[in-house]
Design a protein around this nucleic acid. Structure first.
Lengths: 237, 237
DNA sequence: TATCTTAAAAATCTCGAGAAAAAGTATTGA
DNA sequence: TCAATACTTTTTCTCGAGATTTTTAAGATA
């Protein structure tokens, strides 16, 4: 795998081995919901779908355990990690705590280059939002949104904090996608991002963390508004 | 593997497969320092040592990446995760933040059963300390120390927080063992534990978290006192 | 009908051998 | 002596097949 550092970011640059290709493809399918929560992952079936051998696929699945996207059990194979409202709430709250702390440090430590990166990331995100209006190009927006959040805390010196946050972000993205069908877009996410960037650029730490905390929390609360029967239909697997 | 929950504790109960046995043996050897930091992990050699096939060993190594005890790189195999003073400092600071927060929640939520567990864990730890005086039974003390810290925060409802903390604890233990030869035992750890337990039992949250924070920080500061040349000898690999 | 036992089917887990890549060594030339 | 190239060796990566274990299904008994 390319991401070799112990606390390094979980996004390798380029897949050099079949294990990594399979790892990526599986991760994508789990996050996007093509592989349903709780679904059994039969190696013999999947190896054909992803065009690799059984051993290679097993190794890719082992890697996905790190990301808590796959779970395994004794002699009973692999499964897609289940989902629950409690889990999403836990992810959200933990993320609020860690990401706000990381942002605080990042604002303190960030230099001119960081400001430039942040401005650029926000610009790219804005462009993706404009482009997205007509088309359904969700992927590009997702990627740029992730990068925006990543750049925000990039000046934080703690590798471990950033490592944990990349895992939590990935988890949150999965839940966000599962809830997308039910809840379109009632929020003005662009405005939230802009206010967040402004506060960060002007080094208003308290304001920035307050906005960020609310921003993350809202993604959780929006799913709670959904009628319970519809929700369970999605979550149960 | 037995630990199947996405955010579950990273200590399975019993190894049911060869992959898991190899995973445990390797983890133990890395934490105890039998496999040196940065050392290359050649599958062809190791498979004989651990008595498993190449594929099985690769899978075990993949699992160790989750714990950040092993790193891998493209087509260049696996290595024991390197160590550095900066990394240990990062681990310590992150752990202080997370573990204090978890303790705060645990004290708030903990019921009678939690108090009983805590008292029992402290008692077992004390017994291990007494027994340890003559003999060199480090392992039992290590295990009970881990459990004591685990029970302290067990009433915290956040699985993710506890999951991250179990990873950080494991990392810290590795550094602690590496530094053991250089720095015997200048601290009265028993007194620290006792004060910590007392504060937790009387629900004095501020005092408890203060003690815990100091307690964790001290394990880092004790390694810093070591002469630099000796330290690099240990850390460089 | 429900439960326990027994047998077939499917899936997981494991190993060894072959292809691809990297690391190391020797040779050649200036 | 040094650098670059070609060759050899080692190691990683990958696949397919066999041994265990779990799951499913059928049959028998109360």
């Amino acid at each position: 795998m390319a991401n070799s550092t112990p606390t390094g970011d979980s996004r390798p640059t380029e897949p050099k081995t079949l294990v990594e290709s399979a790892y990526r493809a599986l991760r994508r399918d789990i996050i996007e919901g093509n592989l349903a929560p709780g679904e059994k992952l039969r190696v013999e079936h999947l190896k054909d779908n992803y065009g690799v051998g059984a051993g290679t696929l097993r190794e890719a699945l082992s890697l996905l355990i790190s990301d808590a996207l796959v779970v395994s059990q004794g002699q009973r194979g692999f499964r897609v990690a289940p989902v629950s409202l409690e889990d999403f709430e836990d992810i959200t709250k933990t993320r609020v705590m860690l990401e706000c702390d990381a942002l605080r440090q990042s604002i303190t430590m960030g230099d001119d280059a960081w400001e430039a990166d942040l401005l650029a990331a926000f610009h790219r995100l804005t462009k993706a939002e404009e482009k997205r209006i007509g088309t359904d190009d969700r992927e590009e927006w997702e990627e740029r949104n992730r990068i925006f959040h990543e750049v925000l805390i990039s000046a934080c010196p703690s590798r471990w904090l950033k490592h944990f946050l990349s895992i939590l972000y990935q988890q949150a993205e999965r839940y966000r996608r599962l809830s997308l069908y039910l809840q379109p877009i009632p929020r003005d996410i662009h405005a939230e991002h802009e206010a967040l960037m402004q506060a960060a650029m002007t080094r208003d730490t308290d304001k920035a963390t307050a906005i960020l905390g609310e921003h993350i929390l809202l993604t959780f609360q929006s799913i709670q508004l959904i009628p319970k029967d519809q929700l369970n239909e999605k979550l149960a697997a």
